[in-house]
Design a binder for these strands. Structure first.
Lengths: 196, 196
DNA sequence: GCTTTGGTGGACTGATCGGTCAAGAATGAT
DNA sequence: ATCATTCTTGACCGATCAGTCCACCAAAGC
């Protein structure tokens, strides 16, 4: 029929996501996106719509990938309690501290845009509800395994763990050194979850 | 000597801070600042320097005011433990949820700029170290009053409480309804601090 | 090999950005 | 009243922005 696309959509989305993640939405220009994706303006617009739609595409794919990874991690943990601990400690998993400074793409976007951008706000809510649900499910398993008190509310516990995790993400964003940050995350984990 | 200023510097800083707080740095234009402050471009530049310097001025004055308010609150608490609880619950003090959605000016700014702006990063570190110190001091008092175990490290405890508080701030920013948010904050407080 | 279809990339546009500057206005000093 | 000084205002600047558009081109069907 006609000329086929010369680019891989996923590759483009990945490049674009890195740029938005590093610099934020407003501080990323179309020139940056063209450079990183290797595409011209016309191609970007034809394939993804305007800057805002492209951003949402990148954000959603990031969240979906994250959600899948989280569920895999939680489900594959030998004991559910280990999964919950790893969840809170996830922001400090990179021992160099680079990842901690970079933060979470969704969290960064929420802070920058959620107040003024309904679509980003909706995506934030959707994502954190999905995360809460996955963690709550893991809490239920931990209760079955006898590691978490049976009388605690799984969803409420999940929300507290998520808030704690995001607190760690935030402290990382302030440039706190990774050693101190890891200690803080560990201290939160120890107090919010039963000891082994 | 010469013509006196027609504006009150603090009034201008307050107006400017509100705008930066509501919209963020990049999304605030000089026109917005002129409208809200009532000043012309020339006056703003003569009095505060460029947009970035003006932003830093607003941010620092916000942090200083916050720090004073925090210390007053902590010191005037009848029992130090009450002060610590109030610290974690502060983000949900406004029962309408409006304040929770708006978040914290310093946290918003950290997420938007700290990765790329060394001055904002430095201000973030300075602020959170000051906050940690104030909270740690209050933890020491709580230990003296017998409400917090004497063997826990005050600074480490303070960092965990700060991270938890910022986690609550973040959840508020995602638009979580104030009732759920308050429950989450309460649940964190209950687990991180001894019951009354 | 010609036509058709859709992808590509860069020139172009109008708007808006942050920042400068000069001319005028208001004041205190003399 | 006059002058020196500082503040105020808005016109103006170059740069950059997101977004449009079109000439060109590559591939598939005939």
């Amino acid at each position: 029929m006609a000329r086929p696309r010369e680019f891989d959509e996923r590759r483009v989305l990945r490049a674009v996501r890195e740029q938005f993640w590093n610099a934020g939405y407003a501080a990323t220009s179309l020139q940056d996106l063209m450079r990183d994706s290797g595409l011209g303006k016309g191609s970007l617009y034809a394939a993804f719509g305007d800057k805002h739609q492209l951003f949402l595409r990148a954000l959603r794919s990031y969240n979906d990938a994250n959600d899948r990874a989280l569920r895999t991690m939680l489900e594959s943990a030998p004991r559910a309690l280990d999964g919950l601990r790893a969840f809170v400690m996830a922001p400090v998993r990179d021992a160099t501290g680079v990842a901690a400074r970079r933060g979470c793409f969704m969290a960064n976007s929420t802070y920058e845009l959620a107040a003024a951008d309904p679509e980003v706000l909706a995506e934030a809510r959707r994502t954190y509800e999905a995360t809460t649900a996955a963690v709550a499910e893991c809490v239920v398993r931990a209760q079955r395994e006898g590691d978490v008190p049976a009388d605690s509310d799984p969803v409420e516990t999940a929300r507290a763990l998520l808030a704690a995790q995001q607190g760690v993400v935030f402290m990382g964003r302030t440039g706190m050194d990774i050693t101190t940050l890891t200690a803080t995350a560990g201290s939160l984990t120890a107090q919010l979850l039963p000891e082994a």
